[in-house]
Simulated scan of single mutants.
Amino acid sequence: ESAKRQLEETGVYKYFDNLIYGDEINEGKPSPEIFLKACEKSKVSPEEAVVIEDSVLGAMASNKAKIKCLVVEDTMKFSDEENKLVFKKYNTLLDIIGNL
Rank of each mutant, 00 (worst) to 15 (best):
E1L: 12
E1N: 15
S2G: 07
A3M: 03
A3P: 01
K4C: 13
R5L: 14
T10S: 15
T10E: 08
G11W: 06
G11Y: 03
G11A: 09
V12D: 05
V12L: 09
Y13G: 02
Y13D: 02
K14D: 12
K14C: 10
K14P: 01
D17S: 13
L19M: 11
I20G: 05
G22Q: 10
G22C: 10
E24K: 02
I25E: 05
I25A: 13
E27M: 12
E27D: 13
G28Q: 08
G28C: 11
S31G: 09
S31V: 02
S31R: 03
F35A: 05
L36W: 01
A38Y: 02
C39R: 00
E40D: 13
S42Q: 08
K43W: 00
S45H: 10
S45L: 15
E47R: 10
E48G: 02
A49Q: 02
V51M: 04
V56I: 12
L57Q: 11
L57W: 09
A59M: 13
M60T: 14
A61Q: 01
A61T: 04
S62Q: 03
S62L: 04
N63A: 15
A65F: 00
K66M: 03
K68G: 03
E73C: 05
D74M: 07
T75S: 11
T75D: 12
M76L: 14
F78Y: 11
D80R: 10
E81W: 05
E81H: 04
E81V: 15
N83Y: 04
N83S: 12
N83Q: 12
K84Q: 14
L85G: 06
L85I: 12
L85E: 07
L85Y: 11
V86P: 00
K89A: 15
N91K: 15
T92V: 08
T92N: 12
L93G: 09
L93S: 04
L94K: 15
L94Q: 14
I96W: 05
I97G: 03
I97K: 13
L100T: 07
L100N: 09
